[in-house]
Nucleic acid binder design. Sequence first.
DNA 1: TAGATTGTTAATCGATTAACAATC
DNA 2: TAGATTGTTAATCGATTAACAATC
Lengths: 212, 212
Amino acid sequence: MPYKNYISNSVIRRLPRYYRFLGDLQKEGLTKISSFELSARMKLTASQIRQDLNCFGGFGMQGYGYNVAELRSEIGKIIGVERKIGAILIGAGNLGKAIITYFDFPKYGCELIGIFDNNSDLVDSQIAGVTICHISKLAAFCKKSKPEIAVLCIPKENAGAISEMLVDCGVKAFWNFSHYDINLHFDDIIVENVHMGDSLLTLAYNVNNKNK
Amino acid sequence: MPYKNYISNSVIRRLPRYYRFLGDLQKEGLTKISSFELSARMKLTASQIRQDLNCFGGFGMQGYGYNVAELRSEIGKIIGVERKIGAILIGAGNLGKAIITYFDFPKYGCELIGIFDNNSDLVDSQIAGVTICHISKLAAFCKKSKPEIAVLCIPKENAGAISEMLVDCGVKAFWNFSHYDINLHFDDIIVENVHMGDSLLTLAYNVNNKNK
DNA sequence: TAGATTGTTAATCGATTAACAATC
DNA sequence: TAGATTGTTAATCGATTAACAATC
């Protein structure tokens, strides 16, 4: 579908934000918006918005602007929110539990189809309607249900071994909350890191170094 | 302390990662490392590492490399991990609770000094040794204890009003987990967004558009 | 038609990489 | 000293912004 055969990472990372803003505008009842108006709301340049969108196609109309609902829907298609990629959670501790409770996965193009933990006490209880299984059942489950995404909420110490196992089981992508750089160890595996520790340290730097 | 008077965002965002890797190397018992060896481990170029570090000072030694412990300590000083910035949590639901349980704040230059929620049922219970207070106590608390960072774990609907209130109370920085772009509404306020939704959508895009 | 706003090409800016002299 | 590796300047690359012709 993309017009261009190469889409830069910078552009890709802005897509979800466009998608989110357009959803808000739709809720506000707006039917059309110009790149200029949108740029004011998002604190971007109008130029950048037009460049970004034109990587994927000409969604606008000269002299008019963009149709909000249509543009949102197009970006949704580009991201692929409708496909519902099969995802499993590894590690049902505080963080893992919070993430899947907090998140409506289908809204983000995914479907939670399994939860695994090495703590036997958690096994057979449910989170978000999905039963927790012991980690020993992982390989068999993957063979049968072929999850594509693994949400990693486990301690750094276990992340190396578990991620290797998951890749062997055919998992293609990681949503990584562990303090471990998965991408360093595999080629061809898609990783989205949520290094919250790095994020908090960046904040600390900025607080401590303001006006210096 | 910085050599340069302007440090780009790209450099700042890499500091926590250097800090983390150097900590690992230290645990491994390594005393020295060259920019070349470090670049191989972190999948960066040696050139970039040297450029980055030289924004802050000459921490290396020609013909030798960098002293691991010393470099880590210097980066820690630059970030300011020792200062322990006062932080409060707003919203003690699943996510907020998980984050402060999961995170050892002092390790990241912060200290959790208060928790606030609008749910009366949660008030007076404790998380991570800190008692939850009703949100109505927020202003008085800020006046007295002057927190600099607010960790926002509240629904988007409330984020606008609460963040405004916090800014009025003197809060300087936000660690933002809400689906709301705080930075659009204030100048001079430091915001670190952890837009997990955007992150998951980016992952979905990459899974759905691989090899296209 | 006149006005508005896109799509797209060209210019600028910034960040990354390469090269090499300085020096331990 | 010779070898290694930094600190730093110069070259390249990519991303953002500006400009404008196309067109609704």
